[in-house]
Amino acid sequence: MRIGYLGWRMAYSIFAFLISMTITFVLLHLMPGDYLHTILPYLAEKNPQATLLFQEQFGLNKPLMEQYTLYMRNVLQGNWGYSIHYGLPVVSLISEKLFWTMLIFIPATLLSILLGMAIGSYSGWTCGSNLDSTTFKLMIFLGAVPSYWWALFLVLVLGYYLNLFPLGGYVGIETLDTGMNPLDIVHHAVLPTVALTIVSIPGIYYLMRNSMISTIGEDYILSARSKGFSETYILRHHALRNAMLPMLTVLAMEMAHMIMGSVFIETIFSWPGMGLLTYDALRVRDIPLLQGIFLMDTLIIIIVNVAADFSYPLVDPRVKVG
């Protein structure tokens, strides 16, 4: 890998981030409505002075260009501003919520990758069989059912009727007396993790299955068979490895997407992650917080894309980056 390529890639990423900052700023300022009209519509409507004071308080009365310059400068200096709704610095708020999202997202991603790839590759390997057909239909069903339905189903069956898991939240009420208990948090995280896993599996399954179907027709698979290797060996060491390559980019994007959380799943499970935060910020028109969330999203997408680029040679030594 050339240092020059690395430098070019970094410069390109920074440029993309700057463009994204500008687009975020413009779009959010084009968005109709403001915080005060959402929270206290009658006060804001009856008493426009409240709106003027509110704008002055948060610097929204300054000319747009001045707001833009300030925003760019502050973001680049690491000051992402304060959330209007929560009164907290945007960065600390996002970090906190990101932690809770990651807590369910990491196991959900690992599980969905593991299961999606395992089932997808086997389904592709046995393409046309009854098992493949059944699995394919099952995945269509899993993917077609909306995430909030799965969340409600799990809460209702495993939480309410079977009383195996809490109905929501991230800790039990006894935490007020005993303090946080990691096992209690994990217990609360199981259902949202399962719901996230269920909704993520079909996408990975389809891709892996298609990738595997393309791979099994390759000459090197035929060569491997002619050498007398077992089917399991060929699947694991030849087909699977090659079929995984196109998965990397998609998985990187999937991870970035999942990091932003799921509004439905987090709302139904009262899980205080990024999805719920984004929904709340949009609902009340918390512009500084929305800017922070979208910038964080951009950063994560840029980082995982770069990471995916550089990880290709690890999966396939023939690929040279840069």
């Binding site: 599980l111 593991l114 395992a118 809490p166 399991t232």
Partner: peptide, 28 residues
Amino acid sequence: INGLSIKAGMLKALFLTFFVLAAFAMAA
């Protein structure tokens, strides 16, 4: 195809997942 071996692997994974979930499923 050594399907039995792959099926067994998948079953193992599913059982493992179920076991992990069940382990957390204390009285809620």
